[in-house]
């Protein structure tokens, strides 16, 4: 065990959180993290000791995520799950989610992967615009418009699900 591996080990909880926000399913998210760790090991020499492994690892994981999304698209599967389908997915048994959490997680899954990644990167993971743009490999202007559109889309999806919830209550 060397210092590099020890430092990477410490980043796993954050990588898992980011993966979980990109891919709702827990096992798929951990698969993504595992792919990321395996690729990182092969490229260990590219990373300088002393430098935080966080940006390096997030960059690797983002490339893997984008590759995966492209494959999914080529296979012709729906890239955006409609909210109803998202709601129908049972949450993993061990995962206790409040209604509010489930709604926002579903809504996040329904926005485009590019916007989702940009929004999560700054809003949850706390990267600066410059860092996030660097990790995602896009100009700062593109990043900003993805964040703005992502937030707006998220807001309107949450409003929709709140409306449906109130309709269900009325119907009872």
């Amino acid at each position: 065990m060397n210092e590099k591996k020890a430092a990477i080990l410490g980043e796993i909880p954050r990588l898992r959180r980011y993966a979980r926000s990109l891919l709702r399913d827990r096992d798929s998210a951990d698969d993504l993290v595992q792919d990321c760790l395996e690729r990182a090991l092969v490229r260990l020499d590219n990373w300088q000791t002393g430098e935080s492994p966080r940006r390096w690892l997030f960059t690797i994981m983002h490339h893997l995520f984008i590759d995966q999304m492209r494959k999914v698209n080529r296979r012709g599967e729906a890239q955006m799950l409609p909210l109803e389908a998202g709601e129908a997915q049972a949450a993993p048994a061990e995962q206790v989610e409040s209604i509010a959490s489930r709604e926002i997680i579903d809504a996040l899954q329904a926005i485009s992967p590019d916007r989702r990644a940009a929004l999560v990167m700054v809003a949850i993971e706390g990267f600066s615009y410059a860092e996030a743009a660097n990790i995602l490999g896009v100009p700062a202007g593109t990043l900003m418009s993805r964040i703005a559109r992502g937030r707006e889309e998220l807001r309107s999806l949450l409003d929709d699900s709140a409306r449906r919830r109130s309709i269900r209550v009325v119907e009872k």
Binding site: L9, V33, L37, I124, L154
Partner: peptide
């Protein structure tokens, strides 16, 4: 909305690292 997003994923940080990930590393 941001507060709700953070809260929804906060629990992941407290989960134990799955053995398979530690093994991969």
């Amino acid at each position: 909305d941001r507060a709700a997003l953070r809260a929804a994923f906060a629990g992941v940080m407290d989960e134990p690292v799955p053995a398979r990930l530690r093994q991969a590393l």
